[in-house]
Simulated assay, not measured.
Amino acid sequence: MVIFQKSFIILWLVLLAGCASTNSTKPESTNTKSPPAKQSKESNNKGGYYLDDGPGDNTSIDIASIPDAEPRTEKPLVSSNKPYQALGQKYVPMKTYAPYSKQGVASWYGKRYHGRKTSSGEVYDMYGMSAAHTTLPIPSYVKVVNPTNGRAVVVRVNDRGPFKHDRLIDLSYAAAYKLGLVAQGSGLVEVTAIDTSPEALSIAAKTNVAAVEPSSTSTAQTTELISSSNTNNTLISQSAPSKAISPSGYYVQAGAFKSEANGELLQKKIMDLDLAGDAAVTNVYNNGLHRVKLGPFSSKREADIHANKVRSQLNISAIVTNQ
């Protein structure tokens, strides 16, 4: 009996020890920090947004019906247009409007930044028509065109970025959606600054066109609407009439517009600055576009000289042609 009791006690102690071992807890890790947000793109053939970013949860918004930003005259913010550094690169923002037209890659940002403050101090709204740019004035307005599908939007620049060397502009989710860039996360676009001076906006309202109108042919032929300070909000009344150009010689094409009025404004600006010398400045309609040309010049070298004058004085594209 004693032996049985001792055996029972020993068996009970063994079972008790086993239960205690089963219920013991694993010591917690000393690393209590959350893992950093992933910065890699979604693994698909077309690219994509950051894994912790993306479209919002509000599916009731009709994004296609969201109106473009409406250009208006705004005073640049001193604090937002000072020189700054980001990722080791120095940037010097423009403080006022200057003609700007460039082609590059656009990306977009959505719910990850929705509700956060932008460089202008405004709160970012992913359903607004806004954008971030490294050097354009804050605030300012640009027209963004997707050359792949022909879609275009007007957005208001109110933030800084993107700071990757291969990116030109960061668009809001709504702007990217309307351009057809959401699915692939980024895409090639043409960005052109809009002159929002009272004079330019007045002319745009009268002619029912935007203050900037890129050519539909190529980036090299894209230019901005240049409003002269002495036009007094009127269209061209002193410029030379459009006339045919002789097929011989070399010419400088300074711009190509769908609107004749835009071509005439650039034509007058070139004449006022005497950028053509003794050559004629014409606004010729050809193949659906009004092309502003200087010439003819007797040699390509002479045409190149005047093309460089146009580029340096007006900061716009100018190409030399032989027709």
Rank of each mutant, 00 (worst) to 15 (best):
G48E: 06
N322F: 11
N308K: 15
D278T: 14
P162W: 06
K293D: 01
A240C: 06
D62W: 05
G180Q: 08
I226E: 04
K90P: 03
N286G: 02
L225C: 04
T135G: 00
T321N: 10
K269F: 04
K90W: 07
T219R: 13
M271F: 09
A254V: 12
T59S: 14
A256V: 07
P67H: 07
D274P: 03
K41A: 10
V92Y: 15
I236C: 13
V2K: 13
R311T: 15
D52W: 14
A254T: 08
I270H: 03
Y173I: 00
K293A: 08
A200Q: 01
I316M: 11
S101H: 12
Q184S: 15
H133D: 10
I236W: 04
R311K: 15
T231K: 03
D195T: 02
I3H: 06
G255S: 13
S298A: 15
Y109R: 02
D272A: 08
K117G: 07
E28D: 15
N31P: 04
S317N: 15
A211H: 02
K38I: 11
N286K: 13
L235N: 09
Y49S: 07
K95V: 12
D52I: 11
R160T: 03
L87G: 12
M129P: 00
P162R: 06
P27M: 13
T321R: 06
A37D: 14
G161F: 10
P93F: 05
A183V: 10
L265W: 01
D166S: 13
V78F: 13
L314K: 03
V292I: 12
G295C: 07
Q238H: 12
Y173K: 00
S43K: 06
S101I: 15
A106R: 07
S215A: 08
Y124T: 01
Q253D: 06
D57T: 14
M129V: 01
T59I: 12
T192Y: 05
G277D: 14
P198D: 06
V145Q: 04
F8D: 12
V142M: 00
E264H: 14
T207Y: 04
P93G: 05
P36G: 09
D159P: 04
F4S: 03
G88K: 13
I203M: 09
V145R: 01
P71Y: 08
L87P: 05
N45H: 08
K143M: 11
N315A: 14
P147W: 03
S80F: 11
Y177M: 03
R72W: 04
T234V: 06
C19P: 01
A183W: 12
V2R: 13
E260I: 03
N283G: 00
K268E: 12
A131T: 06
A244T: 12
Q221T: 13
T192G: 05
P162H: 08
M94R: 05
N45C: 10
S60H: 09
M271R: 10
V182P: 00
K268I: 03
Q267F: 07
P67N: 05
A152I: 08
L15Y: 13
K111V: 10
K111T: 06
